[in-house]
Simulated scan of single mutants.
Amino acid sequence: MPDVEQDGSRRRGRNETEEERADRMWSELIQEVRVAQMGVQILFGFLLTVVFTPTYEDLSGTDKTIYIVTVVLGACATGALIGPVSLHRLVSGRRIKPQAVRWASRLTLLGLALLLVTTSSSLLLILRVATHGDYVAYLVAGVVCWYLLCWLGLPMWARYRHTTR
């Protein structure tokens, strides 16, 4: 017989308290953030070095603007993806882990969105400098669509397809 609560309703998911669920979700979130943090920090580090290369002076005004916007986006993505660590450290022991998990999750989603835009604008800048082709915008749009499919489309499809009602 399936697990049944005292009120007669069926129990769904794991049998865990709110605190246990928050602990589990925190551990999962931190593992996910580690992957994204590594990527954004490497990208941001490379972006910071570009301005110190001789080629930077040869960039057009538009390319320099794209570079500056990309660096700022990278800084914002880095901040959002490191934010959950600071949040956890500052609220640890305050008995608000469920709320902290919600805020850390929001920061992570914001960081991923910023990472998408940072990566896309980095690609735009690189392809503009490397090719000077009219097709660059189409290539970048294609990559953005690929990111959206991998980062949003597939997860939303799986959520819709495999979530019990």
Results as ranks from 00 to 15, higher is better:
residue 1 M to D: 07
residue 2 P to T: 09
residue 3 D to Q: 09
residue 7 D to I: 06
residue 8 G to M: 10
residue 10 R to A: 09
residue 11 R to K: 14
residue 12 R to P: 00
residue 14 R to D: 14
residue 17 T to C: 03
residue 18 E to M: 10
residue 19 E to S: 12
residue 21 R to Q: 12
residue 21 R to S: 12
residue 22 A to W: 09
residue 22 A to G: 05
residue 26 W to V: 00
residue 27 S to N: 11
residue 30 I to W: 11
residue 30 I to G: 05
residue 31 Q to H: 15
residue 31 Q to D: 14
residue 32 E to H: 10
residue 32 E to A: 14
residue 33 V to Q: 04
residue 36 A to R: 01
residue 39 G to Q: 00
residue 40 V to P: 01
residue 42 I to M: 13
residue 44 F to H: 09
residue 48 L to I: 02
residue 52 F to T: 05
residue 52 F to C: 02
residue 70 T to K: 02
residue 70 T to V: 01
residue 73 L to W: 05
residue 75 A to Q: 01
residue 76 C to P: 00
residue 78 T to A: 12
residue 78 T to N: 06
residue 79 G to E: 00
residue 81 L to Y: 00
residue 82 I to S: 02
residue 83 G to D: 03
residue 85 V to E: 03
residue 90 L to E: 06
residue 97 K to H: 04
residue 97 K to D: 05
residue 99 Q to Y: 06
residue 102 R to M: 10
residue 105 S to W: 07
residue 106 R to M: 10
residue 107 L to F: 14
residue 107 L to Q: 05
residue 113 A to K: 00
residue 113 A to Y: 10
residue 115 L to G: 11
residue 118 T to A: 01
residue 119 T to C: 01
residue 120 S to V: 02
residue 121 S to C: 03
residue 122 S to W: 02
residue 124 L to F: 14
residue 126 I to V: 15
residue 128 R to I: 04
residue 134 D to P: 09
residue 135 Y to K: 10
residue 137 A to I: 13
residue 139 L to N: 11
residue 140 V to M: 09
residue 142 G to R: 08
residue 143 V to D: 04
residue 148 L to I: 06
residue 148 L to F: 14
residue 152 L to H: 13
residue 152 L to S: 08
residue 158 A to Y: 08
residue 162 H to C: 08
residue 164 T to C: 07
